[in-house]
């Protein structure tokens, strides 16, 4: 074998086919019936990285992981939020029956510190889930996280900008999240280890705003009879003028 190939294999950047049998870890169910059932259920892979790629926060991306957080926090596992873009709102989390004592928020200054933090959190037995919102992450950094998650068989979910979808990544699961009509969330699988991506799934997340959109089928819920949108003065553009 040439030195070049040897180097490539030695340097852990190349994924080899025979390493595949290592994925014995069971997937964590997402808590959504549409996804968990079916011939090839999608789940959060244990001992591997997952990536959620999205353009805007507030499209329901947290709803996707809420059942997981709820289950882990109630089981006494700690859920770390590293560099979240906004403040996780405590009353809303408590309303979702998440045990707040198990939620730890960490802010780091540099990318190196963030990697160090994720690495340490992932390797600890108290950790159930690590979520991170990295600004920029090299593929080496992702590889390091992948190894840490593998070592402790922990869950790690990264929320990244959608333009990273063209970049290759060693993550075991890559999902593209886009808003769909009627406040639902479209989950498109970009990559999943050991399986075909499968068709995009539309997730109805009715509980998000306290209104059961699914039942009402469309648009304005009936209990709002009158709102400010009917009056011209309530248009924000106009009110600012």
């Amino acid at each position: 074998m040439s030195d070049l190939l040897k180097n490539l294999i030695h340097d852990a950047r190349v994924w080899q086919g025979h390493q595949h049998h290592k994925t014995l870890h069971r997937n964590e169910p997402t808590g959504f019936e549409v996804v968990d059932s079916g011939p090839s259920p999608l789940g959060w892979p244990r001992g591997a990285l997952s990536e959620c790629l999205l353009d805007h926060h507030g499209i329901g991306e947290l709803q996707l992981v809420l059942p997981l957080i709820r289950r882990l926090s109630q089981a006494g596992k700690t859920v770390f939020w590293v560099n979240p873009p906004y403040t996780p709102y405590a009353p809303a989390l408590a309303r979702e029956e998440i045990v707040l004592d198990q939620v730890v928020i960490i802010h780091t200054d540099t990318a190196d510190d963030m990697l160090w933090t994720l690495d340490n959190c992932l390797r600890s037995p108290v950790t159930g889930l690590v979520m991170a919102w990295p600004k920029n992450l090299s593929s080496r950094g992702i590889r390091r996280l992948q190894l840490a998650a593998e070592a402790a068989s922990n869950l790690c979910i990264l929320f990244r900008a959608a333009n990273n979808s063209r970049q290759s990544s060693p993550a075991a699961l890559r999902l593209v999240l886009t808003p769909a009509p009627q406040h639902t969330l479209e989950v498109r699988t970009l990559k999943r280890r050991g399986n075909w991506p499968g068709a995009p799934v539309i997730l109805a997340i009715p509980e998000r705003i306290g209104i059961n959109v699914k039942k009402e089928n469309l648009g304005i819920p009936p209990h709002i009879v009158q709102g400010p949108w009917q009056e011209p003065a309530t248009d924000p553009r106009q009110t600012r003028e």
Partner: peptide
């Protein structure tokens, strides 16, 4: 020790 559930009737956002 499960947290005391807040009894809001209205929806609250997860991000503030």
């Amino acid at each position: 020790t499960p947290a005391v559930a807040a009894h809001h009737h209205s929806a609250r956002p997860l991000w503030l």
